[in-house]
């Protein structure tokens, strides 16, 4: 079990260490994830979660939209 775990760890450790193109790709992935995370935090609040305190209030808000006649 211990040896197997060691081999798995070595697979990842050596794999990351020996990457060439992969290094650049990981940079792209990390930059992208940070940008997406920041965009999500700054511009994409969960509207119902932020504006209503309970599930009942959220359901009432959606029901209000559903029972508004044709606009």
């Amino acid at each position: 079990m211990g040896r197997r775990l060691g081999r798995i760890t070595a697979l990842y450790r050596d794999g990351f260490r020996e990457m060439r193109l992969g290094r650049r790709l990981w940079k792209v992935i990390l930059i992208k994830l940070v940008v997406i995370y920041l965009l999500g935090r700054c511009f994409f609040p969960d509207y119902l979660r932020v504006n209503f305190a309970s599930d009942k209030a959220r359901a009432d808000s959606v029901l209000a939209a559903l029972t508004r006649p044709a606009r």
Partner: peptide, 27 residues
Amino acid sequence: GVNFAIGVATGIIMEFEFGTNWSNYSW
């Protein structure tokens, strides 16, 4: 690998959009 690395997580943005732009639908 190149295509996967560049494309991975680009779909997550759509999940943000559900909560912000399409909250009634999302609920």
